[in-house]
Design a binder for these strands. Structure first.
Lengths: 214, 214
DNA sequence: GGCAGTATTAGACCGGGTGTCTAGTTTTTG
DNA sequence: CAAAAACTAGACACCCGGTCTAATACTGCC
């Protein structure tokens, strides 16, 4: 089951040659990538750094070369995930070829497909860590909170587009609605993991859209 | 900082006298109690059994006398929590002195106060474990899922009462709404832990009630 | 060619924890 | 007074945590 990297490029010991192939130049990036895959599944505290290092075939000794501590690594992961997700949100929610509410629907569908692809083992990194908060370095709190704030704003923009196009009533408070969406959405993701089904996502989404008609 | 139980009842070694005081007769109960307090805060996998044992001054060696494994202990905790919570739900939601929707509001307020009392460190055991699912014994899945099912039904009953008293439209599907409530509610709890505030709970609740007017 | 400096990693440090079980002590039962 | 029951001490046998120092292999400059 393991052996994510079956072939072992076998690192040499000293400083690597500058030239060709710079095969490990983006080791840092690879670590982040692997970290995301693992932490979205298992959270922060249950996962050791060498589990991650092993999965990308980076020697344990190297870790401190790339990150100054596990905490710093975690922060980098949150940033990377937030960034990745913000892009994804924008790709869906700012796509002017599609009616605003449909954009949101598409995003939700895509999220469900994403979860299904990983057999509902992976969730949302930010949600995972939020849940673990009491085990985490306090520095994570603000950071995670900020990420939600950011996602909310991106979502609110889409809702305002919907207002502009008269898809939803003009007197709704889009910021508030977006906040509401993200609060509930994380619950839906959690539940989807538990039930190993997209149904919770769908139920939640349906309710959300109904609420928009008021 | 530790020493949850400052006084040490100091257990003797062999079989305890049957007579008077049976001071440790409900050791099992104490373990469950302590387990709940700790697991609602930190989840299952991050917590070791002796952390719990120490907190109630039960020797490590005794554990297997009361539970056959950590997994069995976890199951007992889920049961205990589900039971405790079901009672609490009924106390609120079946209180016929109060209008149905107000019962639900009261429950929500109480939950917020409960979280505040523990400085937003404790969440919902079932939600916590749901989030951890990928680290848990598979046997937990159905059990947790069943607990949600149960809570949903209790909630649905209250909503039907609301229908009966014309607080909400008669054509709403109460089961569905209850499912929707619990999906989102766990998200709100998660978020409340993160923000260390009841606001997420309030925002979610408000949106929930609005939807009931449709 | 040699030497300073830089990039990278080996490998150990050290403490802690894991869940589990056996052997033993003390009581109760009959 | 023996046998069974109730309970616990303490170790077993791991595996792992995050961190850091010393060593190595390269580059760039003189």
């Amino acid at each position: 089951m393991p052996s994510d990297h079956p072939d072992k490029p076998m690192r040499r010991r000293g400083r690597p040659p500058k030239d060709s192939a710079r095969p490990y130049a983006e080791t840092r990036q690879a670590l982040i990538q692997a970290g995301l895959a693992i932490l979205t599944e298992k959270g922060y505290s249950a996962v050791g750094i060498d589990q991650i290092l092993r999965s990308v075939n980076v020697p344990k000794g190297s870790f401190y070369h790339y990150f100054k501590s596990k905490e710093a690594f975690g922060q980098a992961l949150i940033d990377a995930y937030a960034e990745y997700f913000a892009r994804k949100l924008d790709r869906f929610l700012l796509n002017t070829d599609i009616a605003p509410l449909q954009r949101l629907r598409n995003f939700i569908d895509d999220a469900g497909q994403g979860m299904a692809r990983y057999a509902f083992r992976r969730g949302c990194l930010v949600g995972n860590l939020g849940q673990e908060m009491s085990l985490l370095p306090e520095s994570f709190r603000e950071q995670l909170s900020g990420v939600f704030e950011d996602w909310q704003q991106r979502t609110a923009r889409c809702l305002r587009d919907a207002q502009a196009q008269n898809e939803i009533p003009a007197d709704l408070d889009c910021e508030h609605l977006a906040a509401w969406f993200w609060i509930g959405w994380e619950g839906a993701v959690l539940r989807a993991k538990l039930e190993a089904s997209t149904r919770p996502l769908d139920i939640f989404a349906e309710g959300f859209f109904l609420r928009l008609q008021t």
